[in-house]
Amino acid sequence: MARKTLKVTGMSCGHCEMSVKEELEELEGVQSATADHTTGDVEVAYEEGRVTDEQFKEAVEEAGYTLKA
């Protein structure tokens, strides 16, 4: 299982964290996601080769936030 830390801007509360977490966990190949609005960090555990950086970006945007490059 691979792990990645994403930097997400715009999260300001627990509801924001839950929105990002739920969108990421809907992606096939993502085992879990944990967001922290105070730091903007989102930790994702996923199966390498089953999910792409572009899919992470799209999921974060679907939740209404921006993934930093």
Rank of each mutant, 00 (worst) to 15 (best):
D41K: 08
A59E: 02
M18Y: 10
A69L: 06
A2G: 14
C13L: 06
V20I: 11
Q31Y: 06
R3K: 12
V51L: 01
E26C: 09
T52P: 05
E47D: 11
G40Y: 04
V8Y: 05
H37K: 01
T34K: 11
K7T: 15
E47Y: 04
L6F: 01
M1D: 06
E26T: 07
L24V: 09
E23C: 07
S19K: 13
G64T: 02
Y46E: 01
E25K: 01
E61I: 01
G29E: 09
K68R: 11
V20S: 11
G40K: 05
E28D: 07
V30I: 10
G29H: 03
M11C: 11
A45P: 00
G29Y: 03
A45E: 14
E26P: 00
E26Q: 14
S12L: 07
Q31H: 08
H15K: 10
E22K: 14
E22Q: 14
L24E: 07
H37N: 10
E28W: 00
E28M: 04
V8S: 12
L6T: 10
Y46V: 04
L27D: 02
E17D: 10
A2D: 12
E26I: 03
T38D: 01
D36N: 15
G29M: 01
T66V: 01
T39S: 15
L6Y: 06
R50F: 04
E47T: 14
T39I: 03
V30A: 01
E17W: 01
K21S: 12
E25I: 01
E17I: 08
E22P: 04
M11W: 09
G29D: 00
A2R: 13
V60T: 07
D41S: 06
M18A: 15
Y46D: 02
E25L: 05
V51I: 04
A2M: 15
E25A: 05
M11H: 08
E43W: 02
L6K: 13
M18I: 07
Y65T: 08
M11R: 09
T9C: 03
K57C: 05
A63F: 00
A63N: 02
E54S: 14
E62A: 14
K7H: 13
V44K: 10
S12I: 10
V8G: 12
G40V: 06
K57Q: 13
T38S: 13
G49H: 05
Y46M: 04
T9Y: 08
S12K: 05
K68M: 10
R3L: 08
A33M: 07
K57E: 12
E62K: 15
T66S: 12
Q31T: 12
M11A: 13
A2P: 13
A69C: 01
A69Q: 10
T38M: 11
E28G: 13
C13G: 11
